[in-house]
Write a protein that binds this DNA or RNA. Structure first.
Lengths: 338, 338
DNA sequence: TTGTAGGCGTTATCAA
DNA sequence: TTGATAACGCCTACAA
């Protein structure tokens, strides 16, 4: 079939129109080999006239050069995940990579297999796993060793087979706890999120701060991620008069805790101080505006992609990379009464 | 080079191990042509032993079958965008498509070109444009006619060259306004979001409801998307005693409006009713819980992908598809005083 | 039912 | 500097 139809133009069409060989067209397109100015211009004109675009499949087949990076995540909607994805995409676009996404729907092995199969059905330069939850750990294990994979992690973990960029939430938990202690609170209670490990980094940070202050360490109230679970945790704390300051594992938990206190007539921050974690967008709009530990997820995404890109391009496995959260002081924490 | 190195196995490796020809392996893999049980088992064993995976580039090169869908959007983090993306990804995964994303950073032509170039550098089955803003309209125009493209739109628009799935926010605006009128309010004020057209669908719905009730139509307060802009709008309304009910173009605006009222001592819903739009996750957690028009963005994403998939698979251009928002009554709206 | 051979669109190697 | 030509990995007529 001659290419007169409505097929997209290919290299030979351009070559024919420009009156040169296919190799010459390829050379001006790749730019790696010199071509005389005269021919180059003819070729460029033909490319423009035909609206030619290289066939990606053919390119990666012959050159082996891959330019898509897959992101595997449990979720793409919750704030931390979505912000990390944004950072990855932004950095990828700047570096010339396309990002594809695959969510791992549940703990069920078939969901993991499904996502991994789909991801590996592409020609990948590498992959990023968002490892904010235990499913991330399993996803990491399901990926072939030959593929460059970097984890975007919510907490430091011991150096493993795969490099990771992470947010040092232990430092954040410690800073927030010290801040509350510095305000004059006798101790700080803690409502914890689930973790990839027995305890989350922020929970460790809270423990360390209490211990180094030589202060009593209350029982941890274990919760999930959502406000309802924070509400239940709040109810468990509200009748205890020794509770004057609460560090929550994330902002949504903090919202739920605050609602439970409000319903029982304990005012924030007058009666009890509440500090969140993450600095989600609604935190600053809350009443009272929420004091919280800000984690820069967008930057985490950028760094993760940067590590992966360097790995792919230089062949050198990157070092783990940490970033420090920062406490954002707003109005939900104050000195205790009296 | 013989394939003894650490290269991934290819068809010929499998064929050699199984003691059959390459085509036989290909046949058992594609399943379109019958193969004797004996050989089929040998091949499957060899595939498993080698951990063989087909090379995607070679497959799409020879077969022309594409299985990636690109999503172009202004943003991936804001609620509506992220939820739509979630729906797209979910439906795509179920249908065997991979989704890749490209954000169009700004109105600058070079940002549009950059995103479009990156997207078109892949072998695409089709594309989806998230058309919640005016940049979406321009993105749609920048894509080649030959590519199947479906828009995920925030509002109905006149049928155009490309099919779209949309949320009928005009109906939502009308319902919310009628609800407030039904509560006994003399009229309803409106704080509007920007729109792809001179007026957003929800603004039209608000107008229609007021007109058909034969009620005075106040000036629209034009705002942006964020709480700060809602706060400014709230300040513009707070001193007007005729303001007893406000319909906001989205939930974040509603938050800002409520804060402005709270600061000036006007209570919600006792003194003034506020209704939002979208039903973002924080809406139900607010104090008071926000009455708002829920839009199912996840479903929008699913429908959009469904349309695109049918188009790609059957060759028939799909019809436009609408979904109705629903009013979620919570506690931020009530009958007027007295 | 099975194997052989040709070609998908591009890059890279080799002569000229 | 340019042009043939041989891969890249796979699918699919066509022949056996």
């Amino acid at each position: 079939m001659t290419s007169g139809g409505h097929q997209p133009p290919v290299l030979s069409d351009v070559a024919a129109l420009a009156g040169v060989s296919i190799s010459t067209v390829s050379r001006v397109l790749t730019g790696r080999t010199p071509v005389s100015a005269a021919l180059r211009e003819k070729v460029q004109a033909a490319v423009a006239e035909l609206g030619y675009r290289p066939n990606a499949a053919a390119q990666t087949l012959v050159s082996g050069r891959r330019s898509t990076v897959a992101v595997l995540a449990r979720n793409t909607l919750r704030y931390g995940y979505a912000a990390t994805l944004q950072g990855i995409e932004e950095a990828a676009r700047a570096a010339g990579y396309v990002v594809s996404i695959a969510v791992v729907e549940s703990e069920a092995p078939r969901d993991l297999d499904r996502a991994v199969d789909l991801v590996l059905s592409q020609s990948l330069a590498g992959a990023i796993v968002v490892e904010f939850d235990s499913l991330g750990v399993r996803t990491l294990e399901a990926l072939p060793d030959a593929l460059p994979v970097v984890a975007a992690a919510g907490a430091r973990r011991r150096p493993g087979p795969r490099p990771h960029a992470f947010l040092d939430d232990q430092a954040g938990g410690e800073e927030a706890t010290r801040y509350l202690l510095g305000l004059g609170h006798r101790t700080v209670h803690h409502v914890a999120i689930p973790s990839t490990r027995p305890r989350s980094g922020r929970t460790w940070g809270w423990r360390r701060a209490l211990e180094s202050a030589g202060v009593e360490r209350p029982e941890v109230v274990q919760a999930s991620y959502d406000p309802d679970s924070g509400y239940a945790a709040g109810l468990a704390l509200v009748d205890d008069p020794s509770v004057t300051a609460v560090l929550c594992g994330n902002d949504e938990l903090a919202i739920g805790v605050m609602r439970a206190f409000a319903e029982r007539g304990r005012r924030v921050p007058e009666d009890v101080s509440v500090v969140g974690f993450d600095d989600q967008p609604f935190a600053r709009m809350w009443s009272p505006p929420l004091t919280t530990v800000a984690q820069d997820f967008v930057d985490l995404g950028r760094r993760t992609l940067g590590m992966l890109a360097r790995w792919v391009e230089t062949g050198e496995r990157p070092e783990d990379s940490a970033a420090q959260p920062t406490l954002v002081v707003r109005e939900s924490a104050a000195p205790p009464r009296g």
